[in-house]
Computed example of a mutant assay.
Amino acid sequence: MLAHINYIAFDADDTLWENETYFREAEAQFAALTAKYFPTDDIISRLFETEMRNLPRYGYGIKGFMLCLVETLTQITTDPIPVSLLQEYISLGHAMLDKPVIVLPHVLALLQALSPSYQLLMLTKGDLVDQERKLKKSGLASYFHHIEIMSDKKPADYQAILTKLGCEPADFVMIGNSLKSDILPVLALGGYAAHIPFSETWEHERVEEDVVHPNFIALTDIREILPFLKRIQQS
């Protein structure tokens, strides 16, 4: 029997607003700046290795990414690093932090449609200060009953939030673009999870296998969650 959904949670980056494209652009600029020290084709993979090694230290977000840019450069050259190049890296990070917040299509209308009937949550990874900046600039904060900036998105992390809210997993649906972070952990708890793909996916968030689960919802348009919720209400 289908549950009655009380809480609907949204990921933020690349679900509510654009994010990953800014990292891809920054990586390309980093590779161009570093080309004199290392082949462009290899520098991105070296950067990714540095990011993965430092993820437990820095967590997710632009500031950790900036530190990984500098560390990667120190690993690929023994030459003195010009201060001007380091300044360009810092400027690259600052530009990312100053990017406009572009709310994705249909998000605002969906939140307006859902907020009268459901408790809406925003559950996202990332740097606290930066995510708060983006939320404020997005103009979406007022639609959410609860907002959580999470250090990670494992099943235990979701369970802790559900316990705090007094919500059973079967009465909860998570909407997000990452199968690894937004979908699989929630399905493991017995909740519902709706995947809405974004045009860019960070290598760390990629999942190769198909997701097969009775509580999995595949979306091509975020508004497609509405008929799913209607079916539950009528069950």
Rank of each mutant, 00 (worst) to 15 (best):
Y143D: 05
L226Y: 04
L165R: 11
A141F: 03
L69Q: 07
F228L: 12
L120W: 06
E49Q: 13
L120Q: 09
F38E: 12
I76F: 05
Y143I: 05
G64R: 08
D130E: 14
E71P: 01
T220A: 12
Q75K: 12
Q159D: 09
L162H: 12
Y192H: 15
I196S: 02
E200T: 08
P214V: 12
W17S: 13
F30S: 01
Q131S: 03
A9F: 07
V103M: 05
F216P: 06
D13W: 02
K230A: 15
I222M: 11
T40Q: 14
Y22E: 06
A194G: 11
N177G: 00
F228M: 09
I43V: 15
Q234W: 03
P82K: 08
Q131W: 05
T78H: 10
S151D: 13
T163G: 02
A9V: 09
A109Y: 02
Q75S: 10
I5T: 09
V70A: 15
M122H: 05
L114R: 04
F65L: 11
H106R: 14
Y37K: 07
P100R: 07
L33C: 00
K153E: 12
L165V: 11
V101Y: 01
E71Q: 13
E25W: 03
M1A: 14
S138N: 10
C68K: 00
P100D: 14
P197W: 02
L140Y: 09
E203W: 03
P185C: 01
L85M: 07
I44N: 03
E51G: 02
T15I: 12
K99V: 00
G190Q: 09
G191Y: 03
S117E: 11
V70Q: 14
D14S: 06
E88A: 13
W17C: 08
I183W: 00
N6M: 04
S117P: 01
E203N: 01
N177Q: 04
G61A: 00
L179S: 01
Q75A: 03
H145C: 12
K137W: 01
S151K: 15
F172W: 10
S115R: 05
S151I: 06
V107R: 05
H4Q: 14
F10Y: 01
V211N: 02
R24T: 13
E224D: 14
D127Q: 00
I43R: 02
I225L: 12
I183R: 01
G126H: 05
S115H: 13
L16V: 08
I102C: 01
T201M: 15
I196W: 04
P169A: 06
H106D: 15
P56A: 07
G64A: 08
L86S: 06
I222T: 10
K99R: 14
Y192D: 11
T74F: 10
M122G: 03
S117W: 07
T74Y: 11
T77E: 04
N177L: 01
I62K: 08
F65K: 11
G64N: 09
D171N: 15
L135G: 06
K164E: 14
